[in-house]
Computed example of a mutant assay.
Amino acid sequence: MSTLNGQVIGQAHFATRALLDRAVAPLGVDFGQVLALNALTAGPVARTPLVRRLANARKVDESAVHEVIDHLVDAGLAQLDDTTEAQVSLTDAGHATQARVAEAVAGITARLYGDIPPAEADVAGRVLTLVTERANDELAGEAAQK
């Protein structure tokens, strides 16, 4: 039995991420772009809250997320509508790419998690959610002290 710690969690993350990166590379997108495509599937999103949400999720500077959005626009996968507040939405090509990403993720998920008993998956999900919440709380506390 392995001990649950940051190293074990990190190894699982990096191994899974490597599979995702390999699966989406032929689509011409990277991990940050995948997250943005997924965030835009439900429809247009105001750019500022989208940038904040993705920066917080990835623990990166907002400028990195602006670059991701700009790349999606330049690649014809997203478009900007500045009529009221800057809105970002997927183009038809963006929807098609996101659907292919979702298909790849579904395959990876089935292969990696498909035979894990539901009760064990539920416990793991709760534990990882709790660890994430605690880490986010600690990061927020550090940011407030600055």
Rank of each mutant, 00 (worst) to 15 (best):
E67P: 10
A36I: 08
D61N: 05
A39P: 03
R111K: 06
V127D: 11
P44H: 01
D21K: 14
Q87G: 03
V24K: 06
D122E: 13
A119K: 08
R47H: 11
A110W: 01
I69R: 05
Q7D: 10
A64M: 10
V24A: 06
A42L: 10
G107M: 15
P26L: 05
S2V: 14
L37M: 09
A18H: 06
E133A: 13
V127S: 11
M1I: 08
D21A: 08
G125C: 09
L77G: 01
S89L: 00
D115H: 02
E138Y: 08
D82G: 11
H71E: 09
A12L: 09
E120P: 03
L130K: 10
R126L: 13
T16P: 01
G28L: 14
P26K: 10
K59G: 10
L90Y: 11
L20R: 13
G141Y: 02
V65F: 01
A144Q: 09
A119F: 09
A75M: 12
T84C: 09
R53L: 12
Q98G: 01
T83C: 07
H13W: 13
A121L: 14
H66V: 06
V88F: 04
G6E: 05
R53F: 05
L130A: 09
V51L: 02
I69N: 11
K146S: 14
R17W: 08
L19C: 15
Y113A: 08
V45L: 11
R47G: 04
G43T: 00
V8M: 15
R126G: 11
E62H: 10
G43I: 00
V51H: 00
V88L: 01
R53P: 00
A121G: 07
I9W: 10
Q7M: 12
R126P: 12
A143I: 04
T16D: 05
H71D: 13
I116D: 00
L139R: 07
A25V: 09
V101L: 03
R47W: 05
V65L: 02
T132A: 08
V68L: 04
V73C: 05
